[in-house]
Protein backbone atom coordinates (compact mmCIF):
# COMPACT_ATOMS: atom_id res chain seq x y z
CA UNK A 1 0.00 0.00 0.00
CA UNK A 2 2.76 2.43 1.00
CA UNK A 3 4.58 1.43 -2.19
CA UNK A 4 1.48 2.06 -4.26
CA UNK A 5 0.90 5.53 -2.81
CA UNK A 6 4.60 6.33 -2.98
CA UNK A 7 4.73 5.39 -6.66
CA UNK A 8 1.70 7.56 -7.38
CA UNK A 9 3.20 10.52 -5.51
CA UNK A 10 6.44 10.31 -7.46
CA UNK A 11 4.48 10.23 -10.71
CA UNK A 12 2.51 13.25 -9.51
CA UNK A 13 5.71 15.19 -8.86
CA UNK A 14 6.76 14.70 -12.48
CA UNK A 15 3.36 15.78 -13.76
CA UNK A 16 3.54 18.94 -11.65
CA UNK A 17 7.08 19.67 -12.84
CA UNK A 18 5.97 19.37 -16.46
CA UNK A 19 3.09 21.76 -15.86
CA UNK A 20 5.33 24.19 -13.96
CA UNK A 21 7.65 24.13 -16.95
CA UNK A 22 4.77 25.05 -19.26
CA UNK A 23 3.70 27.87 -16.96
CA UNK A 24 7.25 29.11 -16.75
CA UNK A 25 7.67 29.04 -20.53
CA UNK A 26 4.46 31.03 -20.84
CA UNK A 27 5.78 33.63 -18.42
CA UNK A 28 9.26 33.80 -19.92
CA UNK A 29 8.69 33.46 -23.64
CA UNK A 30 5.22 34.82 -24.48
CA UNK A 31 6.26 38.39 -25.00
CA UNK A 32 9.03 40.14 -23.06
CA UNK A 33 8.15 40.40 -19.34
CA UNK A 34 10.01 43.69 -19.03
CA UNK A 35 8.02 45.36 -21.82
CA UNK A 36 4.84 44.04 -20.18
CA UNK A 37 5.78 45.47 -16.81
CA UNK A 38 7.12 48.84 -17.82
CA UNK A 39 5.61 51.74 -19.71
CA UNK A 40 7.02 53.58 -22.71
CA UNK A 41 8.62 56.21 -20.49
CA UNK A 42 11.05 53.76 -18.80
CA UNK A 43 14.55 54.27 -20.14
CA UNK A 44 16.49 51.44 -21.75
CA UNK A 45 19.05 51.61 -18.92
CA UNK A 46 16.29 51.19 -16.32
CA UNK A 47 14.86 48.28 -18.28
CA UNK A 48 18.28 46.62 -18.31
CA UNK A 49 18.70 47.22 -14.59
CA UNK A 50 15.27 45.68 -13.94
CA UNK A 51 16.15 42.75 -16.16
CA UNK A 52 19.32 42.13 -14.17
CA UNK A 53 17.50 42.57 -10.83
CA UNK A 54 14.77 40.08 -11.78
CA UNK A 55 17.41 37.61 -12.87
CA UNK A 56 16.15 37.44 -16.44
CA UNK A 57 19.71 37.32 -17.78
CA UNK A 58 20.53 34.17 -15.81
CA UNK A 59 20.79 30.80 -17.56
CA UNK A 60 17.47 29.17 -18.41
CA UNK A 61 17.81 26.23 -16.02
CA UNK A 62 18.61 28.54 -13.10
CA UNK A 63 15.58 30.68 -13.84
CA UNK A 64 13.32 27.62 -13.95
CA UNK A 65 14.71 26.34 -10.67
CA UNK A 66 14.12 29.72 -9.06
CA UNK A 67 10.57 29.81 -10.46
CA UNK A 68 9.80 26.36 -9.08
CA UNK A 69 11.45 27.14 -5.78
CA UNK A 70 9.41 30.33 -5.38
CA UNK A 71 6.22 28.43 -6.15
CA UNK A 72 7.00 25.79 -3.55
CA UNK A 73 7.44 28.55 -0.96
CA UNK A 74 4.06 29.99 -1.88
CA UNK A 75 5.48 32.93 -3.81
CA UNK A 76 3.53 33.03 -7.06
CA UNK A 77 4.67 36.46 -8.20
CA UNK A 78 2.64 39.58 -8.96
CA UNK A 79 -0.11 40.29 -11.42
CA UNK A 80 0.80 42.67 -14.27
CA UNK A 81 -2.67 44.09 -14.20
CA UNK A 82 -3.52 44.72 -10.55
CA UNK A 83 0.01 44.57 -9.04
CA UNK A 84 -1.46 42.31 -6.34
CA UNK A 85 0.24 39.03 -5.37
CA UNK A 86 -1.17 36.28 -7.61
CA UNK A 87 -1.48 33.92 -4.65
CA UNK A 88 -3.92 36.31 -2.99
CA UNK A 89 -5.99 36.77 -6.14
CA UNK A 90 -6.29 33.03 -6.80
CA UNK A 91 -7.05 32.11 -3.20
CA UNK A 92 -9.78 34.72 -2.93
CA UNK A 93 -11.43 33.32 -6.08
CA UNK A 94 -10.92 29.66 -5.35
CA UNK A 95 -13.78 29.09 -2.86
CA UNK A 96 -16.34 30.30 -5.40
CA UNK A 97 -15.17 27.85 -8.05
CA UNK A 98 -14.76 24.93 -5.66
CA UNK A 99 -18.19 25.39 -4.11
CA UNK A 100 -19.76 25.65 -7.54
CA UNK A 101 -17.91 22.54 -8.71
CA UNK A 102 -18.77 20.48 -5.64
CA UNK A 103 -22.48 21.35 -5.78
CA UNK A 104 -22.54 20.60 -9.52
CA UNK A 105 -20.88 17.26 -8.82
CA UNK A 106 -23.35 16.42 -6.05
CA UNK A 107 -26.30 17.25 -8.30
CA UNK A 108 -24.90 15.01 -11.01
CA UNK A 109 -24.35 12.13 -8.59
CA UNK A 110 -27.59 12.40 -6.65
CA UNK A 111 -29.64 12.49 -9.83
CA UNK A 112 -27.34 10.59 -12.20
CA UNK A 113 -26.73 7.41 -10.20
CA UNK A 114 -30.36 6.59 -9.31
CA UNK A 115 -31.44 7.50 -12.84
CA UNK A 116 -28.74 5.21 -14.22
CA UNK A 117 -29.86 2.33 -12.00
CA UNK A 118 -33.51 2.87 -12.88
CA UNK A 119 -32.93 3.01 -16.62
CA UNK A 120 -30.75 -0.11 -16.46
CA UNK A 121 -33.36 -2.14 -14.58
CA UNK A 122 -36.25 -1.09 -16.81
CA UNK A 123 -34.55 -0.78 -20.17
CA UNK A 124 -37.79 -0.80 -22.14
CA UNK A 125 -39.94 1.36 -19.88
CA UNK A 126 -41.51 4.59 -21.12
CA UNK A 127 -39.87 6.58 -18.30
CA UNK A 128 -36.47 5.21 -19.33
CA UNK A 129 -36.94 6.29 -22.92
CA UNK A 130 -38.03 9.74 -21.76
CA UNK A 131 -35.03 10.13 -19.43
CA UNK A 132 -32.60 9.00 -22.09
CA UNK A 133 -34.05 11.42 -24.62
CA UNK A 134 -34.11 14.43 -22.31
CA UNK A 135 -30.54 13.86 -21.16
CA UNK A 136 -29.40 13.44 -24.75
CA UNK A 137 -30.88 16.83 -25.53
CA UNK A 138 -29.14 18.08 -22.39
CA UNK A 139 -25.67 17.15 -23.60
CA UNK A 140 -26.32 18.18 -27.18
CA UNK A 141 -26.98 21.82 -26.24
CA UNK A 142 -23.85 23.84 -25.37
CA UNK A 143 -23.45 24.76 -21.71
CA UNK A 144 -23.84 28.49 -22.25
CA UNK A 145 -27.18 28.01 -24.04
CA UNK A 146 -28.48 25.98 -21.10
CA UNK A 147 -27.26 28.70 -18.76
CA UNK A 148 -28.94 31.45 -20.75
CA UNK A 149 -32.18 29.46 -20.99
CA UNK A 150 -32.20 28.88 -17.24
CA UNK A 151 -31.58 32.58 -16.64
CA UNK A 152 -34.40 33.43 -19.02
CA UNK A 153 -37.00 31.17 -17.38
CA UNK A 154 -36.13 31.19 -13.71
CA UNK A 155 -34.41 34.55 -13.47
CA UNK A 156 -36.23 36.80 -15.90
CA UNK A 157 -39.67 35.28 -16.60
CA UNK A 158 -40.44 33.76 -13.22
CA UNK A 159 -38.08 35.95 -11.22
CA UNK A 160 -37.46 33.14 -8.70
CA UNK A 161 -33.69 33.08 -8.65
CA UNK A 162 -30.89 35.62 -9.08
CA UNK A 163 -29.13 35.58 -12.43
CA UNK A 164 -25.61 36.66 -11.53
CA UNK A 165 -23.07 36.83 -8.71
CA UNK A 166 -22.82 34.79 -5.54
CA UNK A 167 -25.55 36.48 -3.48
CA UNK A 168 -24.87 36.60 0.25
CA UNK A 169 -21.58 35.13 1.40
CA UNK A 170 -20.01 34.60 4.80
CA UNK A 171 -16.25 34.55 5.36
CA UNK A 172 -14.87 31.92 7.69
CA UNK A 173 -11.12 31.78 8.16
CA UNK A 174 -10.43 33.41 4.80
CA UNK A 175 -12.85 31.10 2.98
CA UNK A 176 -15.75 32.96 1.47
CA UNK A 177 -18.69 30.58 1.45
CA UNK A 178 -22.20 30.87 0.05
CA UNK A 179 -23.37 27.72 1.87
CA UNK A 180 -24.42 29.59 5.01
CA UNK A 181 -26.97 32.02 3.64
CA UNK A 182 -30.26 31.50 1.84
CA UNK A 183 -29.24 34.10 -0.71
CA UNK A 184 -26.02 32.27 -1.35
CA UNK A 185 -27.83 29.01 -2.01
CA UNK A 186 -30.35 30.74 -4.28
CA UNK A 187 -27.54 32.21 -6.34
CA UNK A 188 -25.78 28.85 -6.50
CA UNK A 189 -28.65 26.80 -7.92
CA UNK A 190 -28.72 27.91 -11.56
CA UNK A 191 -24.96 27.89 -12.22
CA UNK A 192 -24.58 24.54 -10.45
CA UNK A 193 -27.31 22.98 -12.59
CA UNK A 194 -25.78 24.43 -15.73
CA UNK A 195 -22.37 23.06 -14.86
CA UNK A 196 -23.71 19.70 -13.65
CA UNK A 197 -25.96 18.74 -16.57
CA UNK A 198 -23.21 17.32 -18.71
CA UNK A 199 -21.71 15.32 -15.85
CA UNK A 200 -25.14 14.11 -14.87
CA UNK A 201 -25.78 12.66 -18.31
CA UNK A 202 -22.37 11.06 -18.45
CA UNK A 203 -22.72 9.53 -14.98
CA UNK A 204 -26.19 8.26 -15.73
CA UNK A 205 -25.26 6.64 -19.02
CA UNK A 206 -22.16 5.07 -17.57
CA UNK A 207 -23.98 3.69 -14.52
CA UNK A 208 -26.67 2.38 -16.84
CA UNK A 209 -24.22 0.62 -19.16
CA UNK A 210 -22.17 -0.86 -16.31
CA UNK A 211 -25.26 -1.88 -14.39
CA UNK A 212 -26.73 -3.72 -17.38
CA UNK A 213 -23.42 -5.52 -17.77
CA UNK A 214 -23.23 -6.48 -14.10
CA UNK A 215 -26.85 -7.65 -14.00
CA UNK A 216 -25.95 -10.29 -16.58
CA UNK A 217 -23.04 -11.62 -14.52
CA UNK A 218 -22.97 -15.01 -12.83
CA UNK A 219 -22.80 -13.69 -9.28
CA UNK A 220 -25.97 -11.67 -9.78
CA UNK A 221 -27.71 -14.71 -11.23
CA UNK A 222 -26.45 -16.77 -8.31
CA UNK A 223 -27.60 -14.16 -5.79
CA UNK A 224 -31.02 -14.13 -7.48
CA UNK A 225 -31.14 -17.92 -7.30
CA UNK A 226 -30.42 -17.68 -3.55
CA UNK A 227 -33.38 -15.37 -3.12
CA UNK A 228 -31.39 -12.30 -1.99
CA UNK A 229 -33.96 -9.46 -1.67
CA UNK A 230 -34.16 -7.33 -4.80
CA UNK A 231 -33.20 -4.07 -3.08
CA UNK A 232 -30.00 -5.54 -1.71
CA UNK A 233 -29.36 -7.26 -5.01
CA UNK A 234 -29.52 -4.02 -6.96
CA UNK A 235 -27.67 -1.74 -4.60
CA UNK A 236 -25.37 -3.88 -2.45
CA UNK A 237 -24.40 -6.46 -5.08
CA UNK A 238 -24.82 -4.82 -8.45
CA UNK A 239 -24.26 -1.10 -7.93
CA UNK A 240 -21.08 -1.60 -5.89
CA UNK A 241 -19.62 -3.60 -8.75
CA UNK A 242 -20.21 -0.77 -11.22
CA UNK A 243 -18.36 1.76 -9.09
CA UNK A 244 -14.76 1.36 -10.28
CA UNK A 245 -15.30 2.61 -13.83
CA UNK A 246 -17.88 5.13 -12.66
CA UNK A 247 -15.50 6.67 -10.14
CA UNK A 248 -12.75 6.89 -12.74
CA UNK A 249 -14.92 8.96 -15.01
CA UNK A 250 -16.40 11.06 -12.21
CA UNK A 251 -12.88 11.86 -11.02
CA UNK A 252 -11.67 12.89 -14.45
CA UNK A 253 -14.84 14.89 -14.97
CA UNK A 254 -14.57 16.68 -11.66
CA UNK A 255 -11.15 17.95 -12.64
CA UNK A 256 -12.75 19.07 -15.87
CA UNK A 257 -15.60 20.80 -14.06
CA UNK A 258 -13.16 22.85 -12.02
CA UNK A 259 -11.01 23.63 -15.04
CA UNK A 260 -13.74 24.38 -17.51
CA UNK A 261 -16.21 26.16 -15.29
CA UNK A 262 -15.01 29.21 -17.26
CA UNK A 263 -18.06 29.23 -19.54
CA UNK A 264 -20.58 28.87 -16.72
CA UNK A 265 -18.78 31.45 -14.59
CA UNK A 266 -18.83 33.97 -17.39
CA UNK A 267 -22.52 33.38 -18.18
CA UNK A 268 -23.49 33.89 -14.53
CA UNK A 269 -20.75 36.44 -13.73
CA UNK A 270 -19.67 34.01 -11.02
CA UNK A 271 -16.59 35.49 -9.31
CA UNK A 272 -14.48 32.33 -9.47
CA UNK A 273 -11.14 31.35 -10.90
CA UNK A 274 -12.54 30.85 -14.37
CA UNK A 275 -13.72 34.45 -14.57
CA UNK A 276 -10.35 35.59 -13.24
CA UNK A 277 -8.69 33.58 -15.97
CA UNK A 278 -10.85 35.20 -18.65
CA UNK A 279 -10.03 38.68 -17.33
CA UNK A 280 -6.34 37.77 -17.25
CA UNK A 281 -6.44 36.68 -20.88
CA UNK A 282 -8.03 39.95 -21.86
CA UNK A 283 -5.22 41.95 -20.21
CA UNK A 284 -2.43 39.47 -21.13
CA UNK A 285 -1.83 39.03 -17.41
CA UNK A 286 0.62 36.19 -17.90
CA UNK A 287 1.66 35.49 -14.25
CA UNK A 288 -2.00 34.87 -13.31
CA UNK A 289 -2.53 32.61 -16.32
CA UNK A 290 0.58 30.62 -15.46
CA UNK A 291 -0.43 30.12 -11.85
CA UNK A 292 -3.98 29.23 -12.86
CA UNK A 293 -2.51 26.49 -15.05
CA UNK A 294 -0.47 25.11 -12.16
CA UNK A 295 -3.39 25.23 -9.71
CA UNK A 296 -5.74 23.42 -12.10
CA UNK A 297 -3.11 20.76 -12.80
CA UNK A 298 -2.71 20.32 -9.07
CA UNK A 299 -6.46 19.67 -8.75
CA UNK A 300 -6.34 17.07 -11.52
CA UNK A 301 -3.44 15.27 -9.88
CA UNK A 302 -5.09 15.41 -6.45
CA UNK A 303 -8.46 14.15 -7.69
CA UNK A 304 -6.83 11.29 -9.57
CA UNK A 305 -4.83 10.30 -6.52
CA UNK A 306 -8.05 10.21 -4.52
CA UNK A 307 -9.69 8.12 -7.25
CA UNK A 308 -6.82 5.63 -7.09
CA UNK A 309 -7.22 5.33 -3.33
CA UNK A 310 -10.98 4.87 -3.73
CA UNK A 311 -10.38 1.94 -6.08
CA UNK A 312 -8.51 0.19 -3.34
CA UNK A 313 -11.26 1.00 -0.84
CA UNK A 314 -13.93 -0.40 -3.16
CA UNK A 315 -12.24 -3.44 -4.63
CA UNK A 316 -10.53 -5.86 -2.25
CA UNK A 317 -8.79 -7.51 -5.21
CA UNK A 318 -6.59 -4.43 -5.52
CA UNK A 319 -5.44 -4.57 -1.92
CA UNK A 320 -1.96 -5.93 -2.22
CA UNK A 321 -0.52 -6.88 1.10
CA UNK A 322 2.71 -5.20 2.13
CA UNK A 323 5.63 -7.52 2.40
CA UNK A 324 6.66 -7.22 6.01
Amino acid sequence: MAYFIGKRLIQSVFVMLAVAFLAFSLFRFVGDPITQMTGVETSVADQERLREELGLNDPFALQFMRFTGDMLQGDFGFSYRTRQPVAEMISSRMPATLELGVVALLISLVVGIPAGVYTALRPRGAATQAILMVTLVGVSIPTFVIGIMLIFFFGVQLGWLPTFGRGGTVTIGGWETSFLTVDGWRALILPAITLGVYQLTLTMRLVRAEMMEVMRSDYIRFATARGVPMGRLYFRHALANTMVPVITIIGLQFGGVIAFSIVTESVFQWPGMGLLFLESIRFVDIPVMGVYLVVIAFFFVLVNLIVDLLYVAIDPRLRIKDVS
Binding site: D218, Y219, F222, A225, R226, G227, V228, N241, P316
Partner: peptide, 23 residues
Amino acid sequence: HRMRGKRISMIFQDPQTSLNPLM
Protein backbone atom coordinates in the same frame (compact mmCIF):
# COMPACT_ATOMS: atom_id res chain seq x y z
CA HIS B 1 -38.46 -15.10 -5.37
CA ARG B 2 -39.09 -16.05 -1.74
CA MET B 3 -38.94 -19.70 -2.69
CA ARG B 4 -35.58 -19.30 -4.43
CA GLY B 5 -32.83 -20.19 -2.03
CA LYS B 6 -35.40 -21.36 0.52
CA ARG B 7 -36.56 -24.48 -1.29
CA ILE B 8 -34.66 -24.56 -4.57
CA SER B 9 -31.08 -23.44 -4.89
CA MET B 10 -28.61 -23.41 -7.69
CA ILE B 11 -24.89 -24.00 -8.27
CA PHE B 12 -23.27 -22.45 -11.30
CA GLN B 13 -20.50 -23.66 -13.55
CA ASP B 14 -17.70 -21.25 -12.89
CA PRO B 15 -16.77 -20.65 -9.24
CA GLN B 16 -14.48 -17.82 -10.40
CA THR B 17 -17.44 -15.71 -11.45
CA SER B 18 -20.33 -16.87 -9.29
CA LEU B 19 -19.33 -15.07 -6.09
CA ASN B 20 -19.60 -11.33 -5.61
CA PRO B 21 -15.97 -10.17 -5.64
CA LEU B 22 -16.61 -7.17 -3.38
CA MET B 23 -18.18 -8.99 -0.43
